[in-house]
Design a binder for these strands. Structure first.
Length: 1108
RNA sequence: GGAAAUAUAGCUCAAUGGUUAGAGCAGUACCCUUAUACGGUAAUGGUUAAAGGUUCGAGCCCUUUUAUUUCCA
C-alpha cells in the first residue's frame, strides 16, 4: 500500500491501458473474476466464433464491446460468467483463400494436390490471423478465454456435431433429395440459403432478356387458336432474363385463371406477320394504343408503331397441354413428355408475358411444375457453368463469365441474335434487375439440380415460432419482424456442400441406397471399422484397425467402408455439411457434449445461454441455426436474450468497404485514442441496434469530455488528499453529519447507481452510459468540485474537510465501478490509484468488486430538487451579469426571488449560501407578498384540463391566458375560479394552471420555467473596493502560479500606488493577505521591480517575494 | 417487385399525445475564479423529410410520397 495518491501530468489513455493490461495478465485478474465466483449462479454467454481467416474490423469492436460489458457487469453482479472463445475454421472462404495462395482451382484438387495436402493447408491457413484477433481481443479489453477456445475442426468438436446429426437422424429429420439449389460454378459448390442471405449477395445487374416465340403445334386442343388466327403459325410469347436456359426449355407455364389474348401483328425484327399469345394485362407493354387495329397493309419495316389486333380471348386453363415445337432443338431429355403448356400457381402478370419459360433444371418452381406434369429434365449446362458438348454452336461456352476471361462474350446475346434471325424473338432488351451472387466469388449464382441432404426444419416450424416468442430480442422488432418472418417462411435446411474442407456428413450407404447408417461418435465409427474388416475381410479399413480413425476430415473418412446388416459394403455420402451447422451446434460442441461435461449442460449451467450478441446480419445466420438446433435437439431456446447490433457505417453514413477505402482500422483507432474511449463512444453514441455513423471526432470528444474531466477530478482529489494525508482512515462520517452539498452529491450518486443498474439489467447500455456522463461532467466536476474547492485547501484537517474528502472519494470509487463494464481500463486504473492508498476494498481490481447497490436511504429527492434550484438560480444570475457586463468577481448587493409557495421558500433558504458564493452576491430576498409588485403570467395546464374539457379546451385555454393580474391573484387566493365559457360555468382549480412571476418592474429580470430572478446591479463604493480587491487577489495568485510557488509558501507583496485601487487595498488588506497567503501587503509610491498587471484598464507593478 | 427500420439544429443524439421541441459538439462572442485551454459562460442556430388525415391538442397515432439502410424474391 502506498501512502500517496499517484499524481499525473497528463492523461494518456493508451499508456494507462498498456499498464493495466500488464497488471491484469500478471495477476490473472480475468481468471480470478471467474474463479472467485465458483459456486455462484452461472450466467451463460456464448461467443459467436469469428473466422481467423480474415482480419478484424472496427465493427467487430462494437459487438465485442457489447458482449464484454454485459459479461463484466454480470460478473460484478455476482454471477459466474464463463466465456469460451471460439474459432470458425471450416467453410468456403478458407478453401478459396487456400486455392488463391496455392494458385490452384477446385479442379486441381486430387490431381495437382492431394486432398490430404489440401486439407492440411486449410488447417494451417485458417488460423492465419489468429494472432491479430487475439491481439485485438487483448487490446480492446475483451475478456474471453483465449486459452481454451473451441475450434470447429477439432475431432472432439466434430464428434459432438456427429452426435447432433445422429439425434436428428433418429428423429427422422434428416433426409436426402434432389433439388434445385443455388450453385456457384465459380466456387464449385452449392450455397445454402444462409449463404445466399449474406449481405451484398443480391446485386443489380443488366442482363439481355428475350421474349421468345414458341411455335404452337396443331392439335384438337389448339385448333381454336389456329382457327382464330386464320393461319398455320401461332406463337406463345415467353420472357426470360436467363436466355442460356432456353436450350434446356421443356415447358411453358400459364396461370389457369389469367386472361390471355391472341394478337395478330408483325415481328419487329423480321417484319413478318405473326400471331402471338400473351397475357391480356401485359399486351400494353408490347403494343402501343395507336397501333391497335391500324392498317396492316401499310406497315413498313421502318415503322416504329406495330399494327396489332386482338383475334381471340381465353383463359390460361384452355391452353393446358397444348404442344409446341422445341425452340432450340439441340438435345432432348432422356425421359418424360416435354414441350407442353403447363398450369402453375406461380405465374403472375406483373412482368414478362404471363407465360413462363420453364426449364426444370434451372428453377425451383420450374422443377416442381415439371415434376407434376412429367416433362422430364434437361441439364445442358455443366457444373463449371458452361454448355455441355451437345448444344451446337454454343457447346463449351460459359453461360456467365466465370473465368474472368477478358475476351468473354455474352452467350445470351448470341442466343438472342440466333433467335432474331430465325423469327423466334419478339423482343430483346437489356433489363436491369437484382440477381443473387456468390458471396465469395461475386459471380452470379445458377440454380442447378443437386443431390442433397436436408434437415426437415419445417417439421418443427410451429415450435420454433412459439419458442421464439419467449426470447428477449433487443430490439424487439428484430425478433418479431425480421426473425419472425423468416421463421414463418422457412424451408428445409440444405445441409450438403460439395467441398473438401469441412465437417463430413457421417452417413454411410450401400450402393443401391437401400441400407444406411448415421454414425454418432468416434467409438461407434471405430467399432464399424473393425466389424467391416471382419465381415468383408481383405484390406478393408486396414490402416484404421490399429489406432482407429485419427482425423475425422476428408480424405480419411472417405477411405472407411462400413458394412450393412445384410453384409453389403457401405460408403460415405460424399457431402460435407454447411458450416452454419458448425456454429449453430456450438452450445453442445464447445463442451464436447455429451461425451464430456454432460452434467454441466443438463443442469442448465451451460445451456441455454442467458445472453448472446452479434451483428444483425446474423439474424438468418447464427441466430437462426442456434435456435433451430436447440429446438430440434432439446425442445428449448438456445438463448434467452439476444442483442443484434447494427452496422458500423462511416461518418457520412456509407457502408464501409475496402474498395471505397473508408474502412477504419481498429488497431490504429485503439492505439490513438485508447480502447476505453473507443468503447465508450460506440456504446453511448447510439443504441447498439441502430446503425452507427463512426467518426473519430466523437471518440476525441469522449476522451476530452468524460475521461479528461474524470481524470482532472481525480488529480484534484489526489493533489489535496496528498497534502492532508487523507487515506480514508477516519470512520465513515454518517450522511446526516455532512454538509448539504455532500449529501446532495451522494444522493445523486445513488440515484445514478439505480439508473445505471436498471438500464444495464434491461440491456440498455447507451442509457446507462449517458447517465454516468452527465453525472461526471455536470454535477460532480462542474458543481460539486467547483463549489467545494475551498473546503479542500482551506482550514484545518477536521470534520468538514474529511467529509469533503470522503464524499469525493466515494463518488470517484463508485463511478469507477459503474463505468467498469464499458471502459474497463481507465476505471481499473482509477480504482487502483484510490484503493492503493486507502485499502478500502479488499479486491485488487475494480472488476473483482461487486457492482454498487443504490442506498435508498441516501436518496433525497427534495435535496436533489433544491440543488437543481440552486443551479438554475445561479445560471440565471450569471446570465444577468453577462447581459449587464458585470463580471462575477465584482460583488453585488442582492438578488430578488419571488417564491410561489412555502415549499419553494424552504428549498431556497437551504441553498442560499451556495448561491450567494457562487454568484458573488451579498444577500437574497424572497418576495412572498407579491400582489401589485410582480407581474404574473398564467398558463393553462393542458394535461389536466385537456382530458376534462375535450373540445372546449381551446376556448378555456384562451380565457385563462387572457386573465388579468387581478383575476390571477383571485384564483391564487381562493384556490379556484369559476370560468364562464359559452354560458357554462366551468370551475378551474389551482392545479389546472401554472402561475409564473414574469417580471418585476424596475429590475433586471430573467426566468427559466416558473423560476424568476431579479438582480440588483447597483455598485456602491464599498462593493467596488471589494471587487477591486478580488481582482488584485486574482492577479497575485497568477503571479504565484507563474512563479511556481508551492501552495503553502508565504509571500510579501508590494504594490505600486494607484489612486483608484488605494481604498480597496487599505480596506480589504486583511482579506487580500489571507487569500494570497501574504504576511504583508504594502503600497509603495514608486515600484520599478516586479511584474506589470492590469486591473480595470489600469496598469501598475506588483512585487511578490517568497518568504524563506 | 415485396417487407422492415430510420429520417428532429451544420454534426451526433434526446423528447409517457399536452404549453414556447431539448442536450453535447462545431461555429460565434466573452471569460479564466490557487483541478483542468484537454477549461468555463453566454447568446445564436428548427417549416421535426414532404403532403394529407385523426384529435381540443401531433415530432409522437393513421395514410401516401421521398431519401437512406437492411432483409426477402
Amino acid at each position: 500500500m502506498s501512502s500517496k495518491y499517484q499524481e499525473y501530468n497528463q492523461l494518456n489513455l493508451p499508456q494507462i491501458e498498456q499498464d493495466i493490461l500488464q497488471a491484469w495478465e500478471k495477476h490473472q485478474i480475468f481468471e480470478k473474476s471467474i474463479a472467485n465466483r465458483d459456486g455462484a449462479a452461472p450466467y451463460v454467454f456464448y461467443e459467436g466464433p469469428p473466422s481467423a481467416n480474415g482480419l478484424p474490423g472496427i465493427h467487430h469492436v462494437i459487438s465485442r464491446a457489447l458482449k464484454d460489458l454485459v459479461c463484466r457487469y454480470k460478473t460484478m453482479q455476482g454471477f459466474q460468467v464463463k466465456r469460451k472463445s471460439g474459432w470458425d475454421t471450416h467453410g468456403l472462404p478458407v478453401e478459396l483463400g487456400v486455392e488463391k495462395a496455392l494458385g490452384i482451382t477446385k479442379e486441381d484438387i486430387g490431381k495437382k494436390i492431394s486432398i490430404a495436402e489440401y486439407n492440411d493447408t486449410c488447417r494451417k491457413e485458417v488460423l492465419k490471423y489468429k494472432d491479430k484477433w487475439e491481439d485485438l481481443t487483448r487490446k480492446m479489453g475483451y475478456w474471453v478465454d483465449l486459452e481454451h477456445p473451441y475450434i470447429t475442426f477439432d475431432n472432439s468438436y466434430i464428434e459432438s456435431l456427429w452426435w447432433c446429426l445422429q439425434q436428428l437422424y433418429k428423429k427422422g429429420l434428416l433426409y436426402k433429395s434432389v433439388s434445385i439449389q443455388p450453385y456457384s460454378p465459380a466456387a464449385g459448390t452449392g450455397l445454402s440459403s444462409h449463404e445466399l442471405n449474406q449481405p451484398g449477395t443480391y446485386k443489380d445487374v443488366k442482363d439481355t432478356t428475350i421474349v421468345a416465340m414458341f411455335k404452337a403445334e396443331k392439335s384438337e386442343r389448339s385448333q381454336f387458336l389456329f382457327d382464330a388466327a386464320g393461319s398455320n403459325e401461332v406463337f406463345f410469347l415467353a420472357w426470360t432474363t436467363t436466355p442460356w436456359t432456353l436450350p434446356s426449355n421443356l415447358g411453358l407455364t400459364v396461370g389457369a385463371n389469367i386472361d390471355y389474348v391472341l394478337v395478330k401483328t408483325f415481328n419487329p425484327y423480321t417484319h413478318l406477320p405473326v400471331n402471338v399469345i400473351l397475357a391480356k394485362d401485359l399486351a400494353g407493354k408490347y403494343f402501343k394504343p395507336e397501333g391497335e387495329n391500324a392498317d396492316f397493309e401499310a406497315y413498313k419495316a421502318e415503322d416504329k408503331i406495330l399494327p396489332w389486333k386482338i383475334l381471340a380471348n381465353f383463359k390460361g386453363g384452355e391452353l393446358e397441354n397444348i404442344r409446341y415445337e422445341q425452340l432450340l432443338p439441340f438435345a432432348k431429355p432422356e425421359e418424360g413428355d416435354p414441350f407442353r403448356v403447363l398450369i402453375g400457381d406461380f405465374v403472375t402478370t406483373e412482368d414478362g408475358t404471363g407465360i413462363v419459360h420453364t426449364a426444370p433444371a434451372f428453377g425451383a418452381d420450374d422443377n416442381r411444375v415439371g415434376k407434376k406434369y412429367g416433362i422430364g429434365i434437361l441439364t445442358l449446362v455443366d457444373r463449371q457453368g458452361k454448355f455441355t458438348d451437345n448444344v451446337g454452336e454454343f457447346s463449351g461456352r460459359y453461360v456467365k463469365d466465370y473465368k474472368n476471361d477478358p475476351d468473354y462474350k455474352d452467350v445470351d446475346v448470341d442466343i438472342a441474335v440466333k433467335l432474331k434471325k430465325e423469327n423466334r424473338a419478339f423482343k430483346v432488351e437489356k433489363y436491369e434487375h437484382t440477381y443473387p451472387h456468390c458471396w465469395r466469388t461475386d459471380k452470379p449464382v445458377l440454380y442447378y439440380p443437386l443431390d442433397a441432404w436436408f434437415i426437415k426444419t419445417t417439421a418443427v416450424k410451429d415450435r420454433m415460432v412459439e419458442l421464439n416468442k419467449t426470447i428477449n430480442w433487443k430490439p424487439a422488432v428484430t425478433g418479431s419482424g425480421r426473425f419472425g418472418n423468416w421463421l414463418e417462411n422457412m424451408v428445409d435446411w440444405n445441409l450438403s456442400r460439395s467441398r473438401y474442407w469441412g465437417t463430413p456428413l457421417p452417413i454411410w450407404r450401400t450402393e443401391d441406397g437401400t441400407e444406411e447408417i448415421c454414425i454418432g461418435s468416434i467409438a461407434e465409427l471405430n467399432d464399424g471399422i473393425r466389424l467391416a474388416n471382419e465381415v468383408l475381410g481383405g484390406d478393408v479399413n486396414k490402416h484404421y484397425l490399429h489406432e482407429g480413425i485419427l482425423d475425422l476430415h476428408k480424405p480419411y473418412v472417405d477411405d472407411i467402408i462400413l458394412v450393412s446388416s445384410t453384409g453389403k459394403p457401405m460408403r460415405r455420402e460424399p457431402d460435407l455439411i454447411d458450416v452454419w451447422f458448425d456454429s449453430g451446434a456450438m452450445p453442445v460442441a464447445q463442451w464436447h457434449y455429451p461425451f464430456e461435461n454432460k452434467e454441466m449442460l443438463e443442469k442448465g449451467q451451460a445451456f441455454p445461454a442467458d445472453f448472446i450478441a452479434e451483428g444483425v446480419d446474423q439474424t438468418r445466420g447464427w441466430f437462426y441455426t442456434l435456435h433451430a438446433l436447440a429446438v430440434m435437439l432439446f425442445d428449448s431456446v438456445a438463448y434467452k436474450t439476444v442483442v443484434s447490433n447494427g452496422l458500423v457505417l462511416d461518418k457520412n453514413g456509407n457502408k464501409m468497404s475496402k474498395r471505397v477505402g473508408n474502412v477504419v482500422d481498429p488497431f490504429t483507432t485503439i492505439q490513438q485514442f485508447g480502447a476505453d474511449a473507443t468503447r465508450w463512444y460506440m456504446i453511448t453514441n447510439a443504441s447498439p441496434w441502430d446503425n452507427m455513423k463512426f467518426d473519430v471526432e466523437g471518440i476525441r470528444e469522449v476522451q476530452r469530455k468524460l475521461f479528461g474531466t474524470l481524470y482532472n477530478t481525480y488529480n484534484f482529489f489526489a493533489m489535496y488528499a496528498n497534502l492532508d494525508n487523507f487515506g480514508f482512515k477516519e470512520a465513515y462520517i454518517p450522511l446526516e453529519q455532512r454538509p448539504e452539498i455532500d449529501r446532495w452529491i451522494i444522493s445523486l450518486l445513488n440515484t445514478l447507481v439505480k439508473q445505471v443498474t436498471t438500464s444495464l439489467e434491461d440491456y440498455e447500455p447507451t442509457q446507462a452510459g449517458r447517465a454516468v456522463q452527465e453525472f461526471v461532467d455536470e454535477h460532480l466536476s462542474n458543481w460539486y468540485v467547483r463549489l467545494c474547492r475551498r473546503r479542500f485547501w482551506k482550514g484545518e484537517y477536521e470534520h468538514d474537510k474529511i467529509s469533503a474528502y470522503q464524499t469525493l472519494y466515494e463518488c470517484l470509487e463508485k463511478i469507477a465501478q459503474l463505468m467498469a463494464p464499458v471502459s474497463p481500463f481507465f476505471t481499473d486504473w482509477l480504482y487502483r490509484n484510490l484503493n492503493s492508498v486507502s485499502g478500502r476494498q479488499p479486491e485488487e481490481s475494480v472488476h473483482l468488486t461487486r457492482f454498487p447497490v443504490a442506498d435508498a436511504a441516501a436518496i433525497d429527492p427534495d435535496l436533489e430538487e433544491r440543488m437543481q434550484l440552486a443551479q438554475d438560480v445561479s445560471s440565471l444570475v450569471l446570465s444577468l451579469r453577462k447581459k449587464t457586463n458585470i463580471r462575477v468577481r465584482q460583488p453585488l448587493q442582492k438578488i430578488l426571488i419571488p417564491v410561489l409557495n412555502p415549499h419553494m421558500l424552504e428549498q431556497l433558504e437551504l441553498i442560499e449560501h451556495l448561491v450567494k458564493s457562487e454568484v458573488n452576491v451579498k444577500s437574497i430576498e424572497y418576495l412572498t407578498e407579491t400582489e401589485g409588485f410582480i407581474k404574473k403570467k398564467i398558463k393553462p395546464n393542458f394535461k389536466t384540463l385537456g382530458s376534462r374539457m375535450g373540445a372546449k379546451m381551446k376556448a378555456v385555454a384562451g380565457a385563462i391566458s387572457a386573465f388579468t393580474q387581478q383575476e390571477i391573484s383571485q384564483l391564487e387566493k381562493d384556490g379556484s375560479f369559476g370560468l364562464i365559457i359559452e354560458n357554462e360555468q366551468i370551475p378551474i382549480q389551482l392545479t389546472d394552471v401554472e402561475i409564473i412571476s414574469e417580471d418585476i418592474p424596475g429590475w433586471t429580470v430573467a426566468n427559466k420555467g416558473s423560476l424568476t430572478v431579479a438582480l440588483d446591479i447597483t455598485i456602491t463604493p464599498d462593493l467596488l473596493d471589494e471587487g477591486n480587491a478580488r481582482e488584485l487577489v486574482n492577479r497575485i495568485q497568477k503571479i504565484r502560479k507563474d512563479s511556481d510557488f508551492e501552495l503553502t509558501d508565504r509571500i510579501a507583496v508590494k504594490v505600486a500606488d494607484v489612486e483608484a485601487l488605494k481604498s480597496a487595498i487599505i480596506n480589504f488588506n486583511d482579506y487580500i493577505c489571507t487569500e494570497i497567503l501574504a504576511d504583508s501587503l504594502e503600497i509603495v509610491p514608486q515600484l520599478q521591480e516586479g511584474i506589470e498587471v492590469e486591473v480595470n484598464d489600469l496598469k501598475f507593478n506588483v512585487l511578490v517575494n517568497k518568504k524563506s
